[in-house]
Design a protein around this nucleic acid. Structure first.
Lengths: 253, 253
DNA sequence: CAGTGGTCTAGACCACGAT
DNA sequence: TCGTGGTCTAGACCACTGG
């Protein structure tokens, strides 16, 4: 009757389960509430634990659930919108910057980074590590690659590495006039170090934002920022507020 | 010696496997090449098939592999960059638009969409479906929500739905002056209908791009576009070319 | 039809957090 | 110490693709 098509191919159990759980989350649970444990839930739905876990994984991917080993599964708050590409371009480290500088080390960049920078493959760069925190939660970790040629007047007095060095590098960067910036977003999985900083397990889904800062016709800096995909919604465009807090895919049908 | 820390907590097998396979892909395989099947690979590495599959899933998520039921697992080509937010804003359906209009149906939008539009909750909208194809592959499916008040002068002569109607709606939209647009990107999983259009299984990871088109101080249209996360790199900023084709996270270390 | 990846099961053990 | 989610196993069957 209501079904537009007889399911000649029944949908997988875990997918159906995802739907059922999703609706239950909408109607019967509040943010932060703890769900029954996986073994109980599996028994309640009459499926193996692995199958239930497949459904939970989907919901976690969609930002609906949060699971922590040793604790349990809780209903996640709506994703937080984090502004990524504002139209009024600004250098990293500009006064209004939301990032926290961690440290700085000199290194020869990986080949892929060297190619994106318009410097030679062997030119050393400053690698500035930064982190971004919102609402008390770490949301992103960043590696900033800055060729030495972008900051030629660095005082040798400053330490060769560390947080003070990082701030000095960013301060020098402000002297260039930023022409424009280009960003790209893609899905990745957290490496061990990023995972630790983001308070997730290795392999957790992340949104990788690669930004080229262009000044004087060349790439003066390259940022690779790793955002938690489960908790973040990346916003582009000036205001940074696209206020759809419910899943924008969800249909009234 | 070389190890900075004795692994008091050994890394999971699947994660190690992912690393080994990833390096093998770099050095011993070419794009499009078919890998041995899962049962053979699992036997070769001395793990259960489920464990091997966990590693393959990671690599597929990262866009390194492509798996197709009944066919096999192949080495994926580099992700294709698709331009999403150009700085020279333009309405959907503008002459240079990369989207292909599919059809149009009138409907009352889901509550979350109605709230994002600044129209009343009960104002009907035109829902224009469009699809985006690059290099012969479908990369995105879009739903465009356009309040009737944004296109008041639609001729009643045109059909009430269908592709012709869709084009008429977009044509009318051009008459408004676009002030700006705001976009947000987040991770989602493909619903059944999107999955079919994108040639993926339900639940496949997608990047959901929500864009508000703002004219005359209000949201004149809302786009919810679903991109394949495995094959796409979304680019923002005019040129649309941030050319890091290798995994930008990969470290030389 | 044979071979592939996709789903599912019923267990086991482990790492972590709280108590 | 106990309960949680995370990892892993060794099977089974199914759905899809191709020849």
């Amino acid at each position: 009757m209501g079904t537009t098509q007889l399911e000649s191919v029944p949908e997988p159990k875990y997918w159906h389960l995802r739907t059922v759980l999703s609706e239950a989350l909408d109607s019967e649970f509040t943010v932060g509430e703890i769900l029954p444990n996986e073994r109980d839930l599996a028994a309640r739905f009459g499926v193996a634990r692995a199958t239930l876990r497949q459904a939970l994984e989907q919901l976690e991917l969609e930002g609906r659930l949060q699971r922590r080993r040793g604790v349990g599964t809780t209903v996640a708050p709506p994703r937080v919108g984090v502004s990524v590409g504002s139209e009024q371009h600004a250098w990293p480290g500009a006064p209004d910057d939301v990032w926290q500088t961690v440290d700085c080390t000199p290194a020869v960049p990986p080949a892929s980074v060297a190619d994106a920078l318009d410097s030679g493959r062997d030119e050393p760069v400053h690698i500035v590590r930064r982190s971004r925190v919102t609402h008390g939660q770490p949301v992103a970790a960043e590696l900033l690659y800055i060729p030495q040629s972008s900051v030629p007047d660095l005082s040798a007095i400053d330490a060769p590495s560390g947080a003070a060095r990082a701030r000095a590098v960013l301060r020098e960067l402000q002297r260039l006039e930023l022409e424009r910036q280009e960003s790209a977003v893609e899905l990745g999985s957290a490496r061990a170090d990023d995972a630790k900083e983001l308070d997730r397990l290795p392999g957790a889904p992340v949104l990788v934002v690669t930004t080229r800062y262009i000044a004087e016709g060349r790439t003066a800096a390259l940022s690779v920022a790793t955002y938690r995909a489960d908790t973040c919604r990346l916003t582009f465009g000036d205001s940074g507020r696209v206020e759809i807090h419910q899943d924008p895919q969800r249909q009234a049908s």
